[in-house]
Design a protein around this nucleic acid. Structure first.
Lengths: 333, 333
DNA sequence: CTGTTAGCGCATTCAG
DNA sequence: CTGAATGCGCTAACAG
């Protein structure tokens, strides 16, 4: 039963040497007698000595913890991103403190503050959809570096890793138009998210390229709640000319929308089809899955963002904030 | 642009008072002049003073971080549990450092060690299915309290929060037998998990109560990989008397098994049905979902475990390790 | 090669 | 009411 508060001091006293000798022996410092070294290391092992991490954190002013703030852990997209982050951080001895914003500005802001208070060395953020105010980021960045991933804030002060959504949306449109679809609706996200604008641009670019008129009634902004999804899909289905295919902000939107379609007697992939962003694994278990989906490689986004953050934390003097774009891929089912 | 390394010392110098005066003023210590207090607090606010958390951690020998080790973040069951944990911890000012074991003993062991090294105040664990050796827990528990949730280690030294799986399995069996099923297979987990044994007991108890013979060929242990699921469901379907319903260890097993059934030309819920544990949200989007499922309330399990850990950390002298059982609920679809 | 000293930021004792 | 001194555990500069 080893002592939980075993310090170098005690080892030193036990052995009749000084604390600094113990310190040097334990870290294989060159200027130490091999005999002393062995003696110290032996006793330390016997007593299960473990350095007090809090003292080391204090001394080095570093915790080897990074904070991660994201909307929902329960959205598989983000838990996959976390996996990429964990992997990258782990390889450098860092671990991650995770907090959910639940798309709420207040929670996000509180999370950032709390992380700073907990002494993380850096922060990774995927922004809440309700975030309208950026002061919490600006305050935090004076203390530790911040890197955004997926739901990013584009600003020269911040690094950001994100997918080329405009291109992905455009590719999806080309695919659909190539399949003969023209009545294509867009169930987009909230305007607070950068990627909402990008999806819209890809959508419109696609229509324009093939001279298909843009119909405002086919374009819906959602706030990412289930209720709003239900509202908006019903609006689309109530149109005189309901869409034959829907490009959905992500899989969760599509699933809820599909549910409504089915309830209204439509058959998925006959009366109406879906194309989605995310490519969540469980969609492959559906009998009538989305006909195509944009894989955004969340693990890669997370890993790249973690890589940038590591650089920012380890070489702050030379680090230049920058952006990394990961190319999504359209997957046809 | 506030100084990132603003210490009490600087405030003290600026104001021509001593550091201890600043310290007292900032924490509203009783023995301080209200004038001095105001003066100090005003300047501290102006300069955006924030106490150095690492110094405080060091001084108090406490980090307000707890570690959480679980199999997979990407399994929604665990991310829901995390949400319960986060909520409970947050209310007491703690945050969580998350690590995935990926059901691997080595990873789990390394995670525990790493958490200790990172200086967490306590650890929550949902065990890896491959964990055969408990020394990593025993070593860690000398340094910080450990509480298990869901996939628990039952031992008087440890606290544990888990569902009454035996009862839940039994209830499921009664339901199925009541519906007229007798050819009921059990796709169970690995023997390393406590809950595997419990499912088996509930399964057998159910059969026995209604005098249905227990057939060894209907009982399969899986290692929770997709490959093994495919192997075992095929074995079941290849029997002379294939089962009419399968009680599955959890939803992911059922989904993969269903896929194979469909590939083999069976129609779900006509030729073969499933009952599962977990009740993951996306199952409700399936055209032919499991006919019943055991809701285990992972958020509740996580929250209760976090509550026990908080008690263990905050009142270590009086804390008695104990177990909390959360009653699952059979949900009929 | 090893011991002594100093200091990281803060809270807390002990003096005044 | 306030200041000076102490120590938390560890590393590192400085002496010897």
């Amino acid at each position: 039963m080893q002592n939980a508060n075993l310090t170098m001091k005690k080892i030193a006293k036990e052995l009749g040497v000084s604390v600094s000798t113990v310190s040097r022996a334990l870290q294989n410092h060159p200027r130490i007698g091999s005999l002393t070294r062995e003696k110290v290391q032996k006793l330390a092992k016997e007593l299960h000595y473990q350095p007090n991490s809090r003292a080391i954190n204090f001394k080095n002013n570093k915790s080897f913890n990074v904070g991660v703030v994201l909307p929902y852990l329960t959205e598989q997209y983000f838990s996959i991103a976390l996996t990429g982050i964990e992997q990258t951080l782990m390889s450098k001895g860092y671990s991650m403190v995770v907090m959910q914003s639940m798309n709420d500005y207040e929670r996000e802001s509180a999370a950032i503050e709390s992380l700073i208070k907990h002494g993380v060395d850096g922060i990774l953020v995927s922004m809440a959809s309700e975030t309208y105010n950026k002061t919490h980021f600006n305050n935090a960045t004076h203390k530790v570096p911040i890197v955004f991933f997926d739901r990013v804030l584009k600003h020269p002060r911040y690094s950001a890793v994100y997918g080329n959504i405009t291109k992905a949306a455009f590719d999806a449109m080309e695919y659909l138009i190539g399949k003969g679809f023209t009545e294509i609706a867009l169930m987009n996200g909230p305007n607070s998210l950068q990627s909402t604008e990008e999806r819209l641009k890809g959508y419109i670019d696609g229509l324009k390229k093939y001279n298909i008129p843009v119909s405002a009634s086919y374009i819906k902004n959602l706030n990412l709640t289930k209720e709003d999804t239900i509202l908006k899909i019903n609006e689309l289905l109530d149109l005189e000319n309901p869409p034959k295919v829907v490009l959905a902000f992500h899989d969760y939107i599509a699933l809820d929308a599909m549910q409504i379609c089915k309830e209204r007697g439509l058959q998925i992939n006959r009366d109406i089809s879906f194309v989605t962003f995310s490519n969540l694994s469980f969609c492959s278990y559906l009998d009538n899955p989305p006909i195509a989906t944009v894989e955004q490689f969340p693990a890669e986004l997370g890993a790249q963002a973690a890589g940038l953050l590591l650089e920012a934390m380890e070489t702050p003097d030379t680090y230049q904030p920058r952006e990394i774009v990961v190319e999504p891929k359209l997957i046809i089912r």
